[in-house]
Structures are given as structure tokens and as C-alpha cells.
Design a binder for these strands. Structure first.
Lengths: 250, 250
DNA sequence: TCAACTTTGTGCACACGTTCACAAGTGCCT
DNA sequence: AGGCACTTGTGAACGTGTGCACAAAGTTGA
């Protein structure tokens, strides 16, 4: 009861996060791709309205995002495409080359290794690793598959910055632990598990199953709505089995 | 200053968005997976603390998320695993089967088609389509690859709900347009382009390149910070920019 | 030079999402 | 029965993200 008042925080001591908002960072690659495409078509200058349309966002949001990088536009004109490409690339750290290791060369790892051109400039696939002796030694996408036992040595020798986990779910956490142990601080996870990592390490997840489930949710809602409308016209019949019944059941 | 008070909105006429917040929907698949895993290990009951840890989120967030579905927990005890699995599955629409068509059976489409088991219950890959005559006719993952010319007929005949675009970027928009034209309202896009679709259609994107770039951004910032600290050790130099140092110091 | 027009960059208000803290239940033990 | 330990569900504060609307700044044309 008489717990001490938690102090209204007169001075939040907020050091003013000087960085770029996460939501903005997540959109920069989209802008970059749209800009690259424009550049290939010979476009030299683009307005926020046009670029926003190409990127599928609102123009105000685009301008605010870009304003976090600096004032790289010209009022009354727009943005110079090449210059903006450079600035975003620099901000994302694409002016240096990041060396990537793919662990797990099954169906998915195979596809990733061969995707070469799709991984745009800035990334080099430097090593492939797998636990299956039947695959080790093969050449995939121009690289030899090495045994996962050599993981630590490979990370060291090849100066790996980013690890891609494309193993079965059962092996993912162990592989991740070893990557982190070897000094990797960025991991891209394709395995359907939640990887646990120490604090400074960053993990991002790509997951087909999750995406499909989110689509299913919205698809279901759309169907339920349509059904409800259809049903509401003719007979009574409380046939609304979907979410409608759920509400009641609760 | 004499600007009229913008009216405190006594009655915001807020229709009370009856749905589940998007952020919550995006996490439900994660909870579902964690729960399934627990169930397989024979766990019957789980507290919000434990489940949150398994899903990699805070326990308060988890409880708030679950509270949007209803009151399915028991105070003092926790959640019954099986029951919660069922409730989340139902909410996500996984109690019915969604029929998926994959367009583009290159490296990636190949991998997706063979992923069979990984696409958990609720989804059936019902058709494969490709434009390359060299691939059409082959059997991949137990399904024949059909010519993309038959797309509309296949969507109709196989009752496709969800389209997966795994084509090269150049073909993606056209394929997407045709899927939508054939009545598909949910699209999962693996091609590195922003797909433009009419309003009721939902598109989600899975993009390795974007994810790598986001990782690179954070990796770069980490390196820059570390470098700044290295430099700052000899001289006094108040280079330590507040929050940056805090991150590291932690 | 000046006015009309275009487009950026941003202040502001609002909506959304996250976290804290605790009242309201539930089960267990005496 | 009653007290104790535990856990959910949620009100409220806080922080982040979005969109409007407009001043500032630039260009074009006369």
C-alpha cells in the first residue's frame, strides 16, 4: 500500500536517442531498392511523392524518414537519385563488404547460396557449412561445403560478420551458440525457433510459416465478414460458425 | 493563442476496433510455436512468465496479447497448453485448411515446395506453376509443375486461397496481378519488389536482402561505437555520446 | 527583380504499442 | 475456514510511429 511514490520523473534524463528510429531503418532498404530501380531506368531526380509511390508508403512518412539522415533534398525539385542512393547505402553500412556464412545447406541453404545476384552489393557469401557428410565437400554456388565442426575456424579465417542459420529447428540453437561463441554478433535465422542470444548480439528471423499464418488470420476475417453479410439477408439460421460463434462461446 | 480549442471530443465516436491489434497478431504464431513445442515435451500447464521466456518477449506483453483473445488462463496457475494451442489456432484460422499455390519453381520455389513438413498444419501446397518450359511437367515435392498460362484455371480448380510469388523480380507484378484477377486475396511475396495491389488484397513480403541490410546497419553502429571507445581511452575526449556508451557499458 | 509555383523539412496532434504495478482470483496448506 | 503464495488480467503512464498541414526554400517565367 504505502509503497513509495515512484517519483514523477521530473527529469527523465533522456539522453535523446541520437540514432535513427527502428521503423525508419526497416524502410530504408525498400527506398534503396526503389531508388536503384529508378537509377537503372535513367531517372536522375525524384520527388518524395513519386518515390513514396514506388516504395508503397505515404510521402510524408518518406520525407520524415529521409530527414533523419540529413537534408539531402532540394526544395522545389526533389532528390537526386544517385546521391540519395549513396547516402542511404552509407547509412546502412553498405559501403563496406559484409562477409556472410550460411550454416545448413539443405533445400533452403542451397537456394540461398545460389541466390548470388539477389543479395545486392554489400554482402559476400564467404562460407558454407553443413553437418551432413553426404553434402560436405560438394560445391554449391561456387563455394565448397565445409564440415560444421570447423565452424569456429571458418569464422576466424574468413572474417565472418553475419551468420545465416538455415539448419533444421533441432540444430539451430546449438549452431547459433557456436556462431556467437566464435564472435559473430549478427544472425539471420530461417529455422522455426526462437533463438536465445546474449545481449549485444542481434538476431532477425525470416519465417514462411509465421507469414502464412498472419495471412490466414486476415483471410479468415475477410471470409467471416463476407459470410455474415450473406447470411444476414435470407433466413435466420445462426450458422455463423467462425468468429461470431466464438464471441458468444466466450 | 486564441485558436479555438480543438474540441475535447467528448464522444470520439470510436467504433471500438473489435479486432486484435496487428502487433499482437504478428506474435501469435510465435506463441503457437512455443506452445506446440511445450506440448510435445509433455508440458500441460505454463505460466505467462515461462511462455514469455520461450517466445522471447516480456511476460506483461504476452498476457496483454492473450487477453485480446479472451480469458483463457487460470489465476494462480497459468495456461493449459492444449487449450491455448486450440484457441490461438482458431483465432488464426488454422482450424480450416488453406490452399496455397507457389508461382515460380526456381531455387527458392523448389525449396519451398520441398519444405512440406515445415509448413505446419493448416496449409496445403495445392499447386506449382512456372513459366519455364524446361521445368513444367517435372514433379517437385510430389506435385507436378504446371505452366503459368494455366494460372487462372488452376486457382479456380484447386480453390486457391493464398498465392506465393517466388518468381524473378521482373515477373512478380504481372503474376501478382493475375493471381488477384483470379480471385486470390492473400499474397506472400519473395521477389525483391514492392507489389501494388487493390485495396482488399493483402500482401506480405519476405526479403533476405532487407533483413541483411538491417543487420548491417546495427553491425556498423556497433563497430563505430567500439571504435569510438577505443579511441577515447588515451585522451579525455568527451566523445562518449550518452546512449551509445550506455549500450556498450551494459 | 518579383510573383507564382513546386517541393522539402518539420511542428503538432493523435493513434498505436509497451511496460509497470496492482487488484482480483485461484489453489494449497494448516 | 482462513491465511498465504502465486498468477492472471487490466488500468494507467509512457514512448514510439503516423499523418496533416504549413512555413521555409528553391525554381521558373516574365
Amino acid at each position: 500500500m504505502s509503497t513509495q511514490r515512484p517519483a514523477p520523473l521530473v527529469r527523465p534524463a533522456r539522453p535523446l536517442r541520437q540514432g535513427i528510429p527502428d521503423a525508419t531503418v526497416a524502410r530504408l532498404p525498400v527506398y534503396l531498392r526503389a531508388l536503384t530501380s529508378l537509377a537503372e531506368h535513367g531517372v536522375e531526380t525524384v520527388s518524395s511523392e513519386e518515390l513514396a509511390a514506388a516504395a508503397g508508403v505515404g510521402s510524408a512518412k518518406l520525407r520524415k524518414d529521409l530527414s533523419h539522415l540529413g537534408s539531402y533534398g532540394t526544395r522545389g525539385v526533389g532528390y537526386e537519385v544517385d546521391y540519395l542512393v549513396y547516402q542511404i547505402s552509407r547509412e546502412l553500412g553498405l559501403t563496406q563488404d559484409w562477409r556472410v556464412a550460411i550454416v545448413g545447406v539443405g533445400n533452403l541453404g542451397h537456394a540461398l547460396a545460389n541466390y548470388g545476384g539477389f543479395v545486392s552489393r554489400g554482402f559476400t557469401i564467404a562460407a558454407l557449412l553443413d553437418a551432413d557428410p553426404a553434402i560436405v565437400g560438394e560445391t554449391v554456388g561456387g563455394l565448397p561445403v565445409r564440415p560444421v565442426a570447423e565452424l569456429e575456424a571458418v569464422v576466424e579465417a574468413e572474417d565472418i560478420h553475419i551468420g545465416v542459420v538455415a539448419t533444421p529447428a533441432s540444430a539451430a540453437q546449438e549452431v547459433c551458440d557456436r556462431l556467437v561463441g566464435a564472435g559473430v554478433t549478427s544472425v539471420l535465422n530461417f529455422a522455426p525457433v526462437v533463438l536465445v542470444v546474449p545481449d549485444p548480439v542481434m538476431v532477425r528471423k525470416v519465417d514462411l510459416s509465421t507469414e502464412l499464418q498472419i495471412l490466414a488470420f486476415h483471410e479468415q476475417r475477410r471470409m467471416a465478414t463476407r459470410l455474415a453479410l450473406d447470411v444476414s439477408s435470407p433466413a435466420v439460421e445462426s450458422a455463423v460458425s467462425g468468429s461470431g460463434a466464438a464471441e458468444v462461446a466466450r
